[in-house]
Design a protein around this nucleic acid. Structure first.
Length: 143
DNA sequence: GCCAACGTTGGC
DNA sequence: GCCAACGTTGGC
């Protein structure tokens, strides 16, 4: 039998539009509104149980929590035209402390992250090494 | 099919 | 508020 591999991802959201605390209050949310082909590809590659880092863009500019894919890609009900997808996410836990964009920029191990390389992408894959590093940072005091 | 113009995102 | 990066659109 084969062990299911768990992929890691990151989604970005402006906290004024939809922040972590609202997400926690909701308990579950459909990640709708993505209108970018690369992001759509990533949404469709998500598998139930995959880990998803939740990043606050514009205000905060930090990774605040961990979520999980609860439902794989299905047609985005908010799309009036075009072929767009969404997934369902559930919050798992807040990070012990947020990991800021500034810290990520300073970490040599995280220089290849899409967050830095392609700042406009709102749904992106995270490598296992990057995920582990972010997890480690979140358990360590910021300077 | 190229490329200039324009719109959007998101950091600063 | 500005601007860089990037995606999309439309003229040719």
């Amino acid at each position: 039998m084969s062990k299911k591999s768990t992929q890691s991802w990151m989604v970005k959201s402006e906290p004024t539009a939809y922040g972590w605390s609202t997400f926690v209050d909701d308990g579950r949310t459909a990640w709708t509104g993505v209108r970018n082909f690369t992001a759509r590809l990533n949404l469709r590659a998500m598998r139930k149980g995959d880990r998803v880092l939740f990043y606050h863009s514009v205000e905060g500019k930090e990774i605040v929590g961990l979520a999980e894919v609860a439902a794989e890609a299905y047609p985005d009900p908010t799309a009036k035209e075009g072929d767009w997808s969404c997934v369902d996410l559930v919050p798992v836990k807040p990070l012990p402390r947020p990991v800021t964009l500034a810290e990520i920029k300073e970490n040599p191990k995280l220089q290849e992250m899409k967050l830095l390389r392609q700042s406009r992408l709102s749904v992106m894959p995270i490598t296992p090494a990057e995920f582990a590093e972010i997890e480690r940072m979140s358990k360590t005091k910021s300077k």
